[in-house]
Every structure is written in C-alpha cells, then in structure tokens.
C-alpha cells in the first residue's frame, strides 16, 4: 500500500537520484562545451545546447514532477501538452513574425540593412519637398531618376494642387526653405 502511494505522488529515492544524476549530466555537458570554447560549428553547438535543455526538461517532468498518464486521470499530461502547444505557437510565431517584419522594414529603421541601401530612403522625402510646382524638374539631376521610387508620395509634381491642405505634407508650405 505504502509503495503504491509513494509511486503516485512523491516518487521514490530511486527516482529522485536517477533524476538528479541525469539532470547533472545534462547540465554539465552544455556548460563544459561552452566554457571550454570547443572547436565546433556554431550552429551545431547551439543545436546541441537546445536539444540537451529539452531533454533535461523532460527528465525534470518525469523524475521530479512525476507527470505521467496515471496522475489525476491523465489531466496533468493533457494540461502540459496544451501549454507546450501554446508555447510553441507563441515562441515560433513571435520569431517568425518579427523576422519577417525586420526583413521588410524600411532600411533607415533597420540597422542591419543599412549598408545595402544607405541613400535611397533619405533621398525620397527630400526630393518630394523640393519638387515644388513651377520648378524646373530637369534642373534637378536626382529627381527624374528617383521619382519612380516613391510615386505614391510624390503629390507635389501635380500642378494646381494646394499642398498645404494635404495631411502630412505641411513642410511644403515653406518654399523659402528651399
């Protein structure tokens, strides 16, 4: 009777020590690999550390937390699996979305993309404001080449429009600055 009770709730000395030894080994290996600065492919080393962490989490669940199919008629396992699924969605989803956002970010906002196109983005708004109606576009060497880059923003090339009434274009009301 007593053994049965211990099995289901607090585990046994054997379980505790098995868990301890496994956890210690699974902790020492990644620390040793990183601290000895072993010669190894960086991606492979990161992969090894992550896999060992995942294995150790399972070891803790089984030997320390006693999650198994029999405890609470299997509801603890069900709860654990649900949270693992939600965690996977949260973490993988966040990384995926944020990676895509970084890739598609405007170059001036993204430092990693700076060397690729340093001049393009700052040039577009500056060109917009300088292209005032009545001005000779051909006199501006940069304007014809860059104009197609931002057609939606280039309202100023349309003659007869009152630019001061357009939201977001308030700087065009100060032609003296040009």
């Amino acid at each position: 009777m007593a053994e049965h009770h211990e099995n289901n709730t607090h585990g046994s000395m054997g379980q505790l020590m098995t868990g301890f030894v496994l956890a210690a080994i699974l902790t020492i290996i990644p620390f040793a690999l990183v601290m000895s600065e072993v010669e190894m492919n960086r991606t492979l080393l990161i992969g090894i550390v992550m896999v060992l962490a995942a294995v150790q989490i399972v070891v803790h669940l089984v030997y320390f937390l006693h999650v198994n199919r029999h405890a609470e008629q299997g509801w603890t396992v069900a709860g654990t699996l649900l949270s693992v699924i939600i965690l996977a969605i949260i973490i993988v989803g966040s990384l995926w979305v944020m990676h895509n956002m970084n890739v598609n970010m405007m170059p001036e906002m993204d430092h990693s993309a700076m060397p690729v196109a340093p001049a393009e983005a700052p040039a577009a708004p500056a060109m917009d404001h300088s292209a005032m109606p009545g001005m000779d576009h051909s006199a501006m060497p940069a304007a014809p080449a860059e104009a197609p880059a931002a057609p939606a923003m280039d309202h100023s090339t349309m003659p007869g429009m009152d630019h001061s009434s357009m939201p977001g274009m308030t700087t065009t009301t100060q032609p003296a600055s040009n």
Binding site: E72, T76, S83, I90, S94
Partner: peptide
C-alpha cells in the same frame, strides 16, 4: 488542489513562454 495547482503552473509557464519569446525577439 493538485490538478488546480498544476493548471496554475501551466499558466505561469505561459507567462515565462511569452517572456522567453520577448527575449528571443
């Protein structure tokens, strides 16, 4: 209590999960 406490821990686990995701990002 055991099952309820386990459900609490799983919700706590989700808090840590979002914080891990924040750190990853």
């Amino acid at each position: 209590t055991p099952l309820g406490f386990w459900i609490y821990l799983m919700s706590d686990c989700l808090i840590f999960g979002t914080l891990f995701a924040t750190y990853a990002v």
